[in-house]
Design a binder for these strands. Structure first.
Lengths: 175, 175
DNA sequence: TAAAATTATTTCAGACCTAAAATAATTTCA
DNA sequence: TGAAATTATTTTAGGTCTGAAATAATTTTA
């Protein structure tokens, strides 16, 4: 390998603030974040299909219901999972057909549909969740505890930044 | 806020290695990573639709083609974007219909379909890419350069860990 | 109270995505 | 050479996901 020329080194060390209008660093950061996310998602999807003949959206929906003792409405689930109401309706339809979820209109407000896991659903979820937790641990096994903590913290900062930017944009549209 | 009890502090500082079988930290890390990824993806999707009446898969596909002067095959694109061949075929069908992409069998190997941007496609992409880069910068604006660099590095480490775990699993299946 | 506005969910049309099977072209090798 | 294996892409069937329109129930308000 050649020694890099001074200009190349300089270029690599140039800060974004010194290159007005250039945001290639952020772009690379986003692409790397997306790659990690996609790799994990694809792998979990494959393993859920192979070992449990189920899908990630179904698992995610069951995971939400499992956390709530009193059940959740369609709207609550769709907010938590960051998917549309229509999508929740469709995924729930499959889970209902398989007897894993129960759906009933709330007594007080009959617009609202309350979703709960059936006994069978809880049992099925328990088995999957245990395996799932192990898979995630395997996937992150190459990071030491310090790195895991650091990454968690930085992603927290990222989340804050994203919420701020998205809220600002939403306000701007209103004005 | 109450002062946390000693046991709570101890618990919070307990390392995963000291809690055999527990991998809640990695699970939380994955959920946070997924949240960030989903927030960005949804926001970019919305902005592409509002400002350019296009979709993220189309943009991503065009971005790949734009990087290559000689064109790319369906297989190359599907590998880069980490989607199935069939999906590339479908998204390309839309871009072909809109005159943004050109598809032709390679002269040497007629199994291979070579995809290139048309002049119109290059022009349309250029406009979108400029805006896109700005959006990403906005979304990450809450991180300072040190944090951006740190996060990029840690996601690199994560990618390595993921590839290792996925490869190991693939080998295990073979044996 | 009755019309209007709001809220929760479902339906719809359409794009996306996958795995697996089918098709088509090329390469290997007996 | 020509059958078999390999490689590249498309097709198919089915699940996922969206935004927008439709439906249905509740709350507001005139």
């Amino acid at each position: 390998m050649e020694t890099p020329s001074p200009s190349l080194v300089l270029d690599r060390e140039t800060k974004a603030s010194e290159r007005p209008g250039d945001h290639k660093d952020e772009l690379r950061l986003w692409l790397r974040l997306l790659t990690c996310s996609t790799l994990i998602e694809t792998e979990i999807r494959n393993r859920l299909r192979e070992e449990f003949k189920t899908t990630l959206p179904r698992f995610d929906l069951m995971a939400q219901l499992e956390k709530s003792t009193t059940g959740m409405t369609v709207g609550e689930v769709s907010q938590r999972l960051m998917v549309s109401n229509g999508n929740v309706t469709a995924v729930v339809a499959g889970l209902l057909a398989d007897g894993l979820v129960d759906k009933r209109a709330a007594a007080q407000d009959r617009r609202v549909q309350v979703l709960t896991l059936t006994a069978q659903g809880r049992k099925a979820f328990k088995a999957m969740a245990e395996r799932h937790e192990g898979w995630i641990a395997e996937l992150f096994a190459g990071l030491d505890p310090t790195e895991t903590t650091q990454l968690f913290r930085l992603l927290g900062r990222t989340k804050t930044s994203l919420h701020a930017a998205i809220a600002q944009r939403a306000n701007g549209d209103k004005a």
